[in-house]
Design a protein around this nucleic acid. Structure first.
Length: 192
DNA sequence: AGCAAGATCGGT
DNA sequence: CCGATCTTGCTG
């Protein structure tokens, strides 16, 4: 049982979408094969006032995707070497996105895109099967099963916790914004 | 046109 | 901690 995450899932605040992405699967079609990796670490970049976010500079050529449709990929190049993979969230009045930082197999947003061959091609494209890169709910839930009879479904419970902390590499944003607890990760899966 | 900075990473 | 490496956006 698996379901593909559609626009509706992403049309919410980045700070709500971000923790909900933990336990979901990033799926990439590569050379005819599907690679599915469970998301374990994310960060929310929320609104034009967030000084850690590209959107705080106002609309520019690079960040315009953040001002667009939820459920699109926002992919940008950084440090001369790495591609960062984000999914756009919220409605258009609130430019925002969630950075996918880590999956179960390994941590680090730059390693993720390198491994899955994700680059500029995906920027502005919708996360779906046609694009070759999308997100699925495969029935994983975080935490303990509620009770034997309540857990009727095809759910698999991951006995771990969602933790949060400050976002990585955004000291330039100043004390207020760099300290926002907008990084979410599964316990034991932190990059740092 | 020039320049400084950057949502990183791996090696000292 | 430091260098690699290059696009972006700001300044002039």
């Amino acid at each position: 049982m698996q379901s593909f995450l559609t626009t509706k899932f992403f049309e919410r605040s980045a700070t709500k979408v971000a923790p909900d992405l933990l336990g979901k699967f990033l799926v990439r079609r590569l050379r005819g094969k599907k690679i599915a990796l469970m998301i374990t670490e994310v960060e929310a970049y929320h609104g034009f006032k967030d000084r850690a976010s590209h959107a705080s500079k106002g609309l520019t050529q690079r960040n315009k995707i953040m001002f667009g449709e939820a459920g699109n990929w926002y992919v940008y190049f950084i440090y001369g070497m790495y591609w960062m993979l984000n999914i756009v969230t919220g409605d258009k009045s609130m430019p925002s996105a969630v950075l996918i930082r880590g999956v179960k197999e390994f941590n680090g947003p730059g390693k993720l895109t390198k491994t899955l061959r994700i680059n500029k091609y995906f920027n502005g494209k919708t996360a779906n099967k046609k694009t070759g890169l999308w997100i699925e709910d495969r029935g994983v839930k975080i935490g303990n099963p509620p009770s034997r009879k309540a857990s009727e479904g095809n759910f698999r419970f991951l006995k771990t916790k969602i933790k949060k902390g400050p976002r990585i590499g955004v000291d330039y944003a100043g004390p207020v914004w760099s300290k926002k607890q907008w990084r979410f990760y599964l316990e034991g899966a932190s990059h740092t």
